[in-house]
Design a protein around this nucleic acid. Structure first.
Length: 963
RNA sequence: GCCCGGGUGGCGGAAUUGGUAGACGCAGCAGACUCAAAAUCUGCCGUUCGCAAGAAUGUGCUGGUUCGAUUCCAGUCCCGGGCACCA
């Protein structure tokens, strides 16, 4: 009986479905384990081999935990709202709901092919009204809450009103704002005023923000859709435009988001990225008077108030209102020109720009301590959203300021003496201050406090903690997203009074509404109800989906509290680093809000996070010659497309001269002359290089092109001709992102069909560590497939049939078994799936060599294999005569006694270089080992009769003789 | 530009805590079985020198710490991810 994977996999996938083998019950009596994948966005391109990497890892771990006796929740769903579906709708006129439905069906069938243990009854789709009902509900929780700084948590907005009624704007816990009022005044305010004030505290609030506006497309663009100031699609100009936007007040949670990192198992890199994103810093805000302006102050934020005497110029963000106010007459033209330039620049470009640019405003700030006049500049490297949007530049201490000063010939004040070499800024805190007025003679880090104190005492500055993180923009001028359950009347935002969900209406026109509004503004009935026309962004639904899986059909709550208490935090979350800051921070914040409001019992969603690396595509190229300049057709026949094999490209011409002796030329002449075409060898080609075109990697074997398949791939290529090397067409290659447009995607379906799901699963794991990015290469899959066939042969021989016996195992066989149990268990626990796969290979090779076919050895290994290759394991388990399911078998226990060793082949080094090995008892101590080693021939040869300086012996590891 | 990763044979990778670099697999080479092929099995396989024994060299690059460095430290180059409206 041979390993017929197709039948086996089909049979068991059906059996699992029919028997509901992966149904997960909310059975509170069992210990739980929650494994979560970052759910996919169901793109039209379908699943490629990069997607399942994390899913296979999580599936293996889920099945492993199940074997260990846990009630395992391992759900899957779809992040089905998003921009690409809307763009596709715009392009094709199909409704996003339709295309999304189709895409999800494709994804699901592809996922099922791989044999995942999902309980599809728990599937969630963020675009499903039954789901987004609760996204809207949570949004309203945010809308109706504020952050109480005293209690350090979210509380109801009615509580805030109570505080205002009782204590006014000065109530404890209220963040300072521009409003200041007494309880009596609050009561006299009209509704609009009250609501405007409350809007400054709501966790979901409305404000104004700048977006990339493209007039020609009538739409807002993402930063990566803007290239060099124009839209990627169409190349239309893009400018900054202020629009009313919703925001989440995530900044109030900055400290708790930082603190929470100490309680969760994320990689240090991930924690660092989040910490840097939050960007907590402490320093001071300082108000500088502006020369000639009585009531205008320039407020800067600095982390180094100790360097205030070294501030040689100020830089303010070009978009600050202040610029127009203070610019001098002579500088007006220059400033306005610069503002126009900055308006066309994306934030990304501004930050990445190496070239120094800026303009002097003509105005001067006054150093409050020395009275020195400091010129005020504008430059794109200062962004309005950071701090106050203005910095005091200290060139001797900050490299960017230093370069700026050098570039514009601004004199540099040295306040750090010999710490500054005149060439490079030095950001030290250890220097003793000079030229610094009352701070002279102090060490910088001590001067910090003194400076802040002086600022506060004189009322010109305050101590300030700042965050780089900004409040999260939470609205999109788009159609395919959750509608806000909000109505606008007389400029007041109110909770929509209907029953949730507020259904996304069907539209005829997906195009943007008037004045930069979203497509919903085109619907008269929607506008008539005064409903919000923005929709929520992609991360709304994904910020809380882990909770919905626990209780997916609950119609009266987003998740029953008893259920969320049971499943609790996600024990293991697997996903890509590209979500390091966005999604992970947002969902951490949402969890904290839900916790604060008492809806769930924990404030961190994910206990442990494992990052999967990205699988890159290995693209293949063909090289097409351009013959129009040199080919002469004597009878006006069309010139065929000619493709040159990769290593011949350079062989065609040299210095513009066609090489008549070249390999290409001979072949080319043959091909062309048969078609009545001649090459004009006298034409000089100044520049000649063939076009490199992406070719579908699926019709390339390694680097060799399948020419027939290529000809069939496009009507254009049907009559193509090829210049070959050694009879083959060799393609070029490059590692790129896996994407449909690069023709480098590989569909898992094809591999499953050819090798089976078990082979595919194990091969994806065998490629390398899950966390690491690596290029996909289908070639090696054969090896894993051969391994499974070899494993099968331990049980069945093609000719002899059944091979297993009931014999007692030998010590050697037991050693293999227990070594394998240890290896697989340890590797699985530490997510080292690639080495686990090789562990299975080693075990199979060793048992084959030992001719071991004993049930008592094979059965435990079969259980170990189940999480990795569930189909073959289940089939063999059943063939071994079991009627119960191997999915719930007892995980084998490792027993050290079977693998104990008494001696070791010690490596013996001379001066750290390995020279020989010696078998020495593991009990042997230093003196005994030294004696043995000195007697060794090889060691004696190296010693040349001299005594060794030292002998280093690490028990169980190695011996090193130092001479 | 800033933040975070990564760099080891022809290729994917292993070396878990500073202790035998290259496990396992792919590709390649030689052989067995076969009319032949497929499948399977056996052996070789970092580089250089050598018949061999062996020696030298080798984990992006330059230094350092150590009896000993792929592993730790400093610097540097290259590649990937993120930088707030792609998901």
């Amino acid at each position: 009986m041979e390993y017929n994977f197709r039948d086996i996999e089909r049979k068991w996938q059906k059996q699992w479905k029919d028997s509901q083998a992966y149904k997960v019950k909310n059975d509170f009596s069992k210990p739980k384990y929650y494994v979560l994948d970052m759910f996919p966005y169901p793109s039209g391109a379908g699943l490629h081999v990069g997607h399942p990497l994390g899913y296979i890892a999580s599936d293996i771990f889920s099945r492993y935990k199940r074997l260990k006796g846990f009630n395992v929740l391992h759900p899957m769903g779809f992040d089905s709202f998003g921009l690409p579906a809307e763009q596709y709708a715009l392009d094709t006129g199909q409704h996003p709901a339709e295309t999304t439905k189709k895409n999800i069906a494709t994804f699901k069938s592809q996922l099922d092919n791989i044999g995942f243990c999902y309980d599809w009854d728990r599937e969630v789709q963020t675009s499903d009204p039954k789901y987004y009902k609760w996204t809207q509900w949570i949004f309203l929780q945010l809308f109706n809450s504020f952050y109480n700084r005293k209690t350090q948590k979210a509380e109801s907005i009615t509580q805030l009103i109570k505080l205002f009624e009782e204590y006014g704007s000065g109530a404890a816990g209220i963040a300072p704002s521009a409003f200041s009022f007494t309880p009596e005044e609050w009561k006299t305010f009209d509704e609009k005023t009250q609501q405007d004030i409350l809007m400054n505290y709501r966790l979901a609030f409305c404000g104004y923000g700048e977006v990339n506006w493209c007039e020609a497309l009538g739409t807002v663009l993402a930063n990566d859709e803007v290239v060099n100031g124009v839209s990627e699609r169409g190349g239309h100009p893009v400018v900054k435009k202020k629009l009313r936007q919703w925001y989440l007040r995530i900044t109030e949670y900055a400290d708790r988001l930082l603190e929470g990192l100490d309680r969760i198992e994320f990689s240090e890199a991930m924690k660092e990225m989040q910490t840097n994103w939050i960007g907590k810093s402490s320093g001071a805000e300082i108000d500088f008077a502006v020369k000639g302006f009585l009531n205008t102050k320039l407020r800067v934020y600095t982390t180094r108030p100790d360097t205030i005497f070294g501030a040689d110029f100020m830089v303010i963000a070009p978009e600050l209102e202040l610029v127009n106010e203070i610019k001098s007459e002579e500088q007006t033209t220059a400033v306005d020109e610069y503002l126009a330039y900055v308006k066309s620049r994306s934030e990304r470009e501004r930050m990445a720009e190496k070239k120094i640019s800026g303009v002097f405003t003509g105005a001067y700030a006054i150093n409050p301590f020395s009275g020195r006049e400091i010129p005020i500049w504008i430059s794109e490297y200062v962004l309005a959203g950071y701090g106050t949007g203005a910095i005091m530049a200290v060139p001797c201490g900050d490299e960017r300021d230093h370069k700026f000063a050098r570039h514009f010939n601004i004199p540099i004040t040295n306040i750090i003496g010999s710490y500054y070499n005149g060439e490079e800024a030095n950001p030290t805190k250890e220097a003793i201050l000079q030229n610094s007025g009352f701070l002279d003679g102090m060490v910088m880090k001590d001067a910090m406090e003194v400076a802040i104190q002086a600022l506060e005492d004189n009322g010109i500055g305050v101590r300030k903690v700042n965050y780089k993180m900004r409040d999260a923009a939470f609205s999109r001028q788009r159609y395919w997203g959750e509608p806000f359950p909000i109505t606008w009347k007389d400029g007041i935002a109110k909770e929509w009074k209907g029953e949730l969900p507020l259904i996304l209406p069907t539209v005829e026109k997906y195009g943007p509404g008037p004045d930069g509004q979203g497509p919903l503004a085109n619907i008269p009935e929607w506008v008539a109800q005064e409903l919000e026309t923005n929709t929520m962004p992609g991360y709304a639904g994904s910020s809380w989906y882990f909770l919905r899986y626990m209780d997916p059909h609950n119609d009266s709550a987003f998740c029953d509290r008893k259920v969320s208490d049971y499943w609790n935090q996600v024990d293991l979350y697997i996903g890509g680093t590209e979500h390091a800051v966005g999604h992970l921070l947002y969902s951490r914040m949402w969890t904290k809000v839900l916790y604060d409001l008492g809806h769930i019992g924990y404030d961190e969603p994910y206990k442990k996070l494992v990052n999967q690396g990205m699988i890159q595509g290995s693209s293949r190229f063909v090289y097409r010659m351009i013959l129009t300049a040199i080919a002469i057709s004597d009878n006006n026949k069309p010139i065929p497309q000619i493709f040159i094999s990769k290593n011949l490209i350079e062989d065609f011409h040299y210095g513009g001269q066609i090489l008549k002796e070249g390999i290409i030329f001979n072949q080319l002449e043959k091909i062309l002359s048969s078609k009545g075409i001649k090459i004009n060898v006298d034409v000089k080609v100044d520049y000649y290089h063939p076009n490199a075109l992406h070719v579908d990697v699926n019709i390339v074997d390694g680097f060799e092109l399948d020419i027939e398949a290529f000809k069939k791939s496009k009507p254009d290529y049907a009559n193509a001709e090829f210049v070959l090397e050694d009879g083959k067409y060799i393609c070029g290659s490059e590692i790129e992102k896996m994407s449909k447009s690069k023709y480098n995607t590989v569909n898992p379906d094809d591999l499953v069909l050819k090798y089976g799901a078990d082979t595919f699963r194990m091969y994806e794991m065998f490629l390398g560590p899950v966390e690491m990015s690596k290029p996909w290469d289908t070639k090696g899959i054969e090896g894993v497939h051969r391994f499974l066939k070899k494993f099968w042969r331990l049980f069945f021989d093609e000719i002899k049939g059944k091979m297993w016996t009931e014999d007692e195992p030998t010590a050697e066989e037991l050693k293999v078994l227990h070594k394998t149990i240890k290896k697989i268990e340890e590797d699985t626990e530490r997510f080292s799936f690639n080495t686990a796969v090789s562990g299975f290979m080693i075990a199979t090779n060793e048992l084959t060599d030992l001719k071991c076919h004993k049930r008592s050895v094979l059965e435990p290994i079969l259980i170990l294999l189940t999480p990795y290759a569930p189909h073959i394991a289940t089939e063999l388990w059943s063939l071994l005569g079991h009627s119960d399911s191997i999915l719930d078998a007892a995980y084998p226990r490792f027993e050290a006694k079977y693998v104990a060793e008494t001696s070791k082949e010690y490596p013996v080094s001379i001066n750290g270089k390995l020279r020989t090995t010696m078998n020495i008892s593991l009990d042997a101590a230093q003196p005994e080992v030294e004696q043995l080693v000195l007697q060794n021939d090889v060691v004696q040869k190296w010693l040349e009769g001299k005594p060794p300086k030292k002998i280093i012996f690490v028990k169980g590891k190695m011996v090193n003789v130092v001479i």
